[in-house]
Design a protein around this nucleic acid. Structure first.
Lengths: 138, 138
DNA sequence: TTCTACATTAGACAGCGTCTAAAGTTGGAT
DNA sequence: ATCCAACTTTAGACGCTGTCTAATGTAGAA
């Protein structure tokens, strides 16, 4: 499987040092359970390329989401997180103690009963957040 | 069933004009499908009590959530909404076109398979957001 | 009526993100 | 190798949603 950096070149993205650094942040073995905030990505990008700007990180993350290479994840606080696990359909578990986020496979989700106000609603996607206590905190 | 305003008095809350106005915003017949932002509540409160301050609205909404009289709901944007439907366990459907939010009863949600990274996670609550197109927009 | 604990207020401040307009770069065309 | 148009990056101002502070006001028990 290509790395994210390689896929961007294939997509015809102009490859810049900034984009290389940002995408390499997500090029780690095992894409599961990575949920970085933009500020965390910025921090890692600055470590590799000190003059990179915040706007570029935000712009690039947004473009990666639009391109389907990252998922944007919100688990209740107001911070957007970026999840490179785009291949496997999954939901999230959030630990109420430590805030850790885990991917959980989405399977056998059943359609809700939409009688009442939501009659006629056509569901396009379903997003589930399980909250509780993780093994480390329990 | 008591009104929210009445329940607050029963709880021993000091009753002020501000609290009366804010709680009356949610005292409407049929608590389903009400999902107001703090600014919307402020707007309605100002209509009834022009000198009310933003801080009071935010404070009071927070207290109502802590007291279990309102649910705070986030459906992906960064705005918190307040939902007076605390009696029936429900999830939300969000229209991708118009942004309307509908309550849908929670039933028969099955526990996810948590093998892997989330082993040992104890689930305390589950929150589901269905996204799609509502009857009006479809 | 008094008094105190509680509630309200204006406005400054904070976190996360977006926008702008000026300057810099990439990479195909030549 | 060079050029140059289109694309990208940048600093920093700005915006939105929400929080905090410290001064002032008030509900309601005694």
């Amino acid at each position: 499987m290509d790395s994210l950096t390689e896929r961007l070149t294939e997509r015809g993205w102009r490859m810049t040092p900034q984009r290389r650094v940002i995408s390499s942040v997500f090029d780690v073995s095992g894409a599961a359970n990575i949920h970085l905030t933009a500020e965390e990505v910025l921090e890692r990008a600055v470590a590799a390329l000190p003059e990179i700007s915040r706007a570029t990180v935000y712009n690039t993350l947004g473009e990666l989401v639009d391109a389907g290479e990252l998922l944007s994840v919100r688990v209740g606080d107001r911070i957007t997180r970026y999840d490179p696990n785009v291949m496997s359909d999954h939901h999230h578990m959030v630990c109420n103690e430590c805030g850790a986020i885990f991917d959980v496979p989405a399977r056998g989700m059943r359609a809700p009963n939409t009688s009442g106000a939501a009659d006629g609603f056509v569901i396009q996607s379903t997003e589930v957040i399980y909250r509780g206590v993780c093994a480390d905190c329990g």
